[in-house]
């Protein structure tokens, strides 16, 4: 057997990790929620793909955009995509450390400017479509 043939080779210890480790602490749980927002981000991109596939057909498109199931799915996805936005903006000052001379630009200012830009971008898109 392999173990007997190489007696000096020690066995690698793999620390067991239960699949529910992320339920054990609030911070782990929030991390997992943040990571799982990607499913809703990807899912919404997939929905947009369906939407453009139907855009050539007037009736099919109208049925799709007012279908209760589509509205419901997007209602469920909304808090998750918002959580993605919020966690993403709040992480920006940690990833991007900006110095002005000797002084570090306040993380609150960097995150805050993200939120302002978010509001402006959303308003522009809404105005473009509805205005």
């Amino acid at each position: 057997m392999a173990d007997e043939a190489a007696p000096t080779k020690s066995k690698e210890y793999i620390r067991p990790m239960p699949a529910n480790w992320w339920l054990k602490k609030r911070t782990y749980f929030l991390f997992m929620v943040r990571e799982l927002t990607c499913v809703f981000v990807g899912g919404y991109a997939l929905y947009l793909l369906v939407l453009i596939a139907q855009a050539g057909n007037e009736t099919a498109f109208a049925t799709l955009v007012s279908h209760p199931l589509c509205v419901l799915l997007q209602l469920v996805a909304l808090p998750m995509v918002l959580y993605h936005s919020i966690t993403w903006f709040n992480l920006t000052p940690k990833v991007m450390v900006v110095w002005r001379g000797e002084e570090r630009v306040s993380p609150v200012l960097i995150a805050g400017s993200n939120y302002v830009a978010w509001l402006i971008a959303s308003a522009v898109v809404a105005w473009f479509v509805l205005g």
Binding site: Y44, L78, V81, W88, S122, V125
Partner: peptide, 8 residues
Amino acid sequence: AAFLIPIT
């Protein structure tokens, strides 16, 4: 996704 998905 962060900037544009919610409004879209």
